[in-house]
């Protein structure tokens, strides 16, 4: 137990050296990693999305790829392609950039729905199917996808059914003034290269398994059910959280408990993760596909503030 906590603290400290002043974002990224989930980062450019992903990859000694999505990108550009090798007279699979541990899928809403769905399917099943052959993706595997919510021009917003595949949706936000200053002073980028792995891929998988063993009391499970049920009956939402969403919340909460050094869940784990784990899984009534007006996070926050917590 304390060993796990120690490892997690080392990762967080290591990432924290590169991404200054955002401990809660780092915690969410680590939670995503431990829960075998993927992160959707919604933010304007230049707040450290790449730094976060790269630093996380370096800290766990894993492979890292960045895919910059554009509108003319094809599915094969992501998952790879089978190439005829005349010398061997057989098809050789040329794996795409997806075949690594940590993937930063930048501006995922810039590409066509086809390419998006090929990425998301791969993400979901941790494998790539091509020409009747399946190629498993390396483990651990984690996608950090980003999209800029302010842009409408020439974008293809992810459909709600696809958003469901992300464990958490988070925002990084601008750093606080003192931290921004220390970034300017150079505390940030050169550090990235200097980061050394503080744990290995096997450790990550061991931690993931440990997260699965975190004890969830009956009352906490009831609390999750109550939260999810509240999203389904809320008059403000036209689409509540699916069963997949409640599972995701439980998984994330377990990882969070582990990262907090506990082998049992407390309601706080659930409560603090409810908004990042559920907000992208609901649809607000009377709202366009991309937004404005009431946002789902505000609705969820008000739900979380109303649902009674187990005593």
């Amino acid at each position: 137990m304390s060993h796990a906590l120690d490892l997690i603290h080392r990762v967080e400290a290591s990432v924290g050296r590169a991404l200054v002043g955002k401990p809660e974002v780092i915690r969410l990224a680590v939670v995503g990693l431990l829960a075998r989930g993927h992160l959707l980062i919604e933010d304007v450019p230049g707040v450290g999305k790449t730094t976060l992903a790269a630093a996380l990859a370096r800290s766990i000694g894993a492979g890292f790829q960045r895919i910059q999505f554009t509108s003319d990108m094809l599915p094969s550009d992501v998952i790879g392609v089978s190439i005829w090798e005349p010398g061997k007279s057989e098809f050789v699979f040329k794996p795409g950039p997806l075949f690594t541990n940590i993937v930063l899928a930048d501006e995922i809403n810039r590409t066509t729905p086809k390419t998006q769905s090929s990425l998301l399917e791969a993400m979901n099943e941790a494998q790539v199917s091509l020409d009747h052959t399946t190629y498993p993706l390396p483990r651990p595997f984690m996608v950090l996808a980003t999209q800029n919510p302010r842009e409408h021009e020439g974008t293809y917003p992810l459909p709600e059914s696809q958003l469901d595949r992300f464990l958490l949706r988070i925002r990084i936000g601008y750093p606080g003034a003192p931290d921004e200053k220390s970034v300017l002073r150079g505390a940030g980028s050169p550090v990235l290269e200097a980061l050394v792995p503080v744990l290995q891929a096997e450790d990550v998988m061991a931690l993931q398994e440990e997260a699965d063993r975190v004890r969830a009391d009956e009352s906490v499970l009831d609390y999750i059910m109550a939260l999810v049920a509240a999203t389904r009956t809320s008059p403000l939402l036209s689409l509540g959280v699916s069963p997949r969403g409640s599972l995701a919340l439980l998984r994330a909460a377990r990882a969070q408990a582990l990262a907090d050094g506990r082998d049992y869940l407390v309601p706080d784990d659930v409560k603090s993760l409810a908004v990042p784990a559920l907000a992208h899984r609901v649809m607000v009534k009377g709202r366009g596909a991309q937004g404005g007006g009431l946002d789902a996070e505000a609705v969820l926050r008000s739900i979380v503030q109303d649902v009674p917590v187990p005593r």
Binding site: Q305, P308, V309
Partner: peptide, 8 residues
């Protein structure tokens, strides 16, 4: 409060 966790 009813929606307040022990920690909060």
């Amino acid at each position: 409060g009813s929606a307040e966790t022990a920690r909060e």
